[in-house]
Write a protein that binds this DNA or RNA. Structure first.
Length: 439
RNA sequence: GUGGGCAUGGCGAAGCGGUUAACGCAUCGGAUUGUGAUUCCGACAUACAUGGGUUCAAAUCCCAUUGUCCACCCCA
């Protein structure tokens, strides 16, 4: 490229490279998710990264602004997928008739959001998304939660808590308890309630009281009930919904749901009902949930989702109910990296050291026999003194060095040395080498 | 999108108006010709984000730009 100016090596903000260690860790986690999904009868699919813009846009006011969209080379309005749920709804609508419902799906893929990057927030990141489409039932909700909960339990070295809420119950609780005079007031209350994990309860209570037409006494009772349910005190909330038997039943089934998942998965992780989980706007219609690491309350959610019973209607006249959730793999890995808990560099079993280029062919035949016996093996990729090769073997973390020189080649033998003990077998047979290595 | 902090070699980090800009890590090479991880020596060639200013003098002070981080919004 003589003459052309050097292009600065840089990448777009919010986008990341993954080194071998990070990639290995990510792959291991993806495999864990796949295993749990497969055990649960979920089928994996893939969909395109790029979609028509109108497929992705219009499902929620706030999120539309964060969709990467542009004109393609043929002047079509296109957009990078913002999540895996909306494209899946499109997939379901497009494959109606061939999909036998209910359909349990796994999808692992990168999604894109044009928001300001921060710690644990990227513009491109991987989601592991489980969904069940075609049925609206507590069983389906439980399946999703259980499967995500189990996968996360295997992945996470940190204890976590999954919090369950319900859009419908929360709305009716607000209506029943506070009797807001208008939809605007109701929405404001909803936003305040959603802040309950950031603001102290008393502050939320004061702000609700300050809204027009709200009785101070009602606000206090309401906030108290919400605050107490975080400590597993369910009765106040149930009492609050006394007059609304429909919501009461829903809430009871929510408690049942949490109990089911909880019972099925013993351990340090927990699941609980927390009606203050509102999860913004979006397409959710019923159960919603989010998962946070117990030790890092300020860190964002690492797994969340909910029920969306009308999303497919955007693409079809048929109503197809759905529920699902995503594990935010990259956010989780960012936390692991911060805590120094990424996987370790994998060890190679053997390094073949060659005394002189004359033995190269024999050395490669030895190398290949080692690989055939499932020993991860490498060799110097350039001519080097033996001392250099040992250094290299050491820095690569090879457990054994197999030395090949003129006498080894002549006798069809090898010399093998254990790098941690220093024990060496000189000019020995292949059988003895394998026994030595596998000992 | 709104507000705030920070920008020194591949990474970490000192210096805070006049220095050959320390030091550590990593990388590479060498220390009697088939043996490493310890030690010793050496190399990293235009390192103070960019552009303006103030000053006899700026990595050090001021402004802008860019990047990055943090908070809000929203979210995995």
């Amino acid at each position: 490229m003589a003459g052309s100016p050097i292009v600065e090596a840089r990448k777009l903000k919010g986008f990341q490279d993954f080194d071998p260690i990070q990639t290995a860790t990510r792959n291991r986690f993806k495999d864990i998710v796949r295993k749990h999904a497969q055990l649960g009868g979920f089928r994996e699919i893939e969909t395109p990264t790029l979609e028509y813009a109108d497929v992705l846009l219009g499902s929620g006011g706030e999120t539309d602004k964060q969709v990467f969209k542009f004109l393609d080379n043929g002047a079509r309005e296109v957009a990078l997928r913002y999540d895996l749920t909306v494209p899946f709804a499109r997939y379901v609508a497009e494959n109606q008739g061939t999909l036998s419902l209910p359909f349990k799906r796994l999808q692992i893929g990168n999604v894109f959001r044009a928001e300001k990057p921060q710690k644990g927030r990227f513009r491109e990141f991987c989601q592991c998304d489980l969904d069940i489409i075609g049925v609206d039932s507590p069983e389906a909700d439980t399946e999703i939660l259980l499967c995500l909960f189990n996968a996360l339990s295997e992945i996470s070295p940190f204890p976590f808590t999954m919090s369950l809420g319900h859009r419908g119950i929360l709305s009716s609780a607000i209506r029943v308890a506070l009797k807001p005079s208008s939809l605007e007031v109701e929405t404001e209350i909803l936003i305040l309630v959603d802040k309950m994990d950031k603001l102290p309860a008393a502050e939320v209570c004061n702000q609700i009281k300050a809204l027009p037409g709200i009785y101070a006494k009602d606000a206090e009772l309401f906030v108290e009930a919400l605050a107490n349910q975080k400590n597993q005190n369910q009765q106040q909330l149930l009492d609050l919904l006394e007059s609304d038997s429909e919501s009461r039943k829903l809430l009871e089934s929510l408690y049942e749901l949490a109990a089911m998942v909880s019972a099925a998965s013993a351990g340090k992780n927990s699941i609980k009902v927390d009606l203050s989980i509102a999860r913004g706007l979006g397409y959710y219609t019923g159960v919603v949930f989010e998962t946070r690491l117990d030790g890092f309350p300020g860190f964002g959610a690492i797994c969340s989702g909910g029920r969306y019973n009308h999303l497919v209607e955007k693409f079809s006249n048929h109503q197809v109910a759905g529920v699902g959730g995503s594990i935010g793999l990259d956010r989780f890995i960012a936390k692991l990296a911060e805590e120094g808990l990424l996987d370790k560099e994998p060890e190679l079993t053997a390094f073949v050291a060659v005394a002189s280029p004359a033995q190269r062919a024999y050395a490669f035949s030895v190398l290949n026999r080692l690989r055939a016996k499932q020993c991860s093996t490498t060799i110097s990729l350039k001519e080097q003194k033996l001392g250099q090769q040992f250094k290299k073997a050491n820095s690569l973390g090879c457990k054994f060095v197999v030395v090949i020189g003129a006498s080894e080649e002549a006798e069809k033998t090898v010399t093998v040395k254990n790098m941690s003990t220093g024990v060496e077998l000189k000019e020995t047979s292949f059988e003895q080498m394998f026994a030595f290595i596998h000992a």
